[in-house]
Nucleic acid binder design. Structure first.
Lengths: 197, 197
DNA sequence: TTATTTTTTTAACAGCGTTTGGAAAACCTA
DNA sequence: TAGGTTTTCCAAACGCTGTTAAAAAAATAA
């Protein structure tokens, strides 16, 4: 009875095609240009089919946001294993966020409701900012061992520094300016780490 | 011949009504809920009338963005006159940005393409980030008198710190969390100023 | 009052997210 | 293989959206 398995495989395939197509169109024309009908066109199905996989366009974008954060956090975990020094870890985390935003700007935009992308729910942020077992929170805690509950404040500052820097750059600067801004970002991160040590 | 004057007065009035109505709807229902037809409904005209005042919805939002930056910069200029100490000036600038984002979140969202608001053009940013005669740039220059061309980098960092912090807060946090985050913002600003002095 | 100019609106176009009802295809059973 | 059942899929429609063209209405000038 491989029929059920084949069907499930196909379903997974189509679901991924929908997500990928949405990202592709967004990369090409911006999130303003992403519509259910255009996605359906590309995957060669009729529009209603997409609703078999996602309750709404909003949920579809929320999935892309979630996968984006998952990918980032996976990278953070790897960094935590590879490097010992918490300062080095944080520098690497900052760099991986920057690289992510350069390589997948359209995903970054969904993650932070930028440039026409918009997801109603803030659920993913709640999960992502949650402190229990968060790799970056632990890095900061190791850097400020006596800081106690101030670690959480510093962790939030870290979020605003890294994501905020890139958000503002992405929103206010043309694409070609990213290379010029990167050293400013690194310097800012470096200074921040020094200032909390 | 007061006819022409009366007409121009009326035109200015209607134009302001359009802008105000757009902001009002955005505050109530978010920028996703702002449509030409709804604005027309409120100002009691038919939709095409709006196109006598703005070439497109995009231009309408761009106007709101521009007015937002104008208001902010006006505040910066006043701060520059009132306080002597550049450190104090920057603290006050940071506070005025924060207050602005609390009092007019919907305008802040248009200014930085957040939460469903989206303006294509980046023209206003070019003007606003322009360094010649910029009040905040001059405050930072006075704080780092020997820094030379690094002042411009620091100025960009300042942008990312202040606007980025609020952007991330506005995007990831519910409204009621703003009060809790404010001290973290102030602390971040304070630390940044110290770190560049 | 009539002619001219200005202002305003009606109606339409193409596109959007989403839902419904039924057609088509795939599958199971005999 | 044939008939019945289940699953998959889509055409059509609803009420929105930004925007435009042309006609109607109003205001002004002669």
């Amino acid at each position: 009875m491989g029929i059920v398995e084949r069907r499930e495989r196909l379903k997974k395939q189509v679901r991924n095609d929908i997500l990928k197509t949405a990202r592709d169109i967004a990369r090409e024309d911006g999130w303003q240009g992403v519509s259910i009908r255009k996605i359906a066109d590309v995957i060669e199905y009729s529009p209603p089919i997409i609703y078999e996989y996602f309750d709404s366009k909003d949920k579809l974008l929320e999935t892309i946001r979630m996968e984006g954060f998952d990918e980032l956090r996976g990278g953070f975990d790897r960094i935590k294993e590879v490097y010992r020094d918490p300062e080095k870890q944080l520098v690497e985390v900052a760099q991986s966020i920057w690289n992510f935003s350069v390589e997948q700007p359209e995903v970054f935009q969904v993650m932070f409701n930028q440039e026409g992308a918009f997801v109603q729910s803030k659920k993913v942020y709640q999960q992502e900012l949650d402190l229990t077992g968060n790799p970056v929170w632990e890095m900061i805690a190791r850097l400020r061992p006596k800081a106690g509950e101030k670690v959480s404040m510093t962790y939030y500052e870290w979020w605003c520094l890294t994501y905020g820097f890139i958000s503002i750059t992405m929103t206010t600067q043309p694409k070609h300016a990213f290379a010029k801004v990167e050293p400013i970002y690194r310097e800012g991160v470096r200074r921040f780490i020094r200032s909390i040590m």
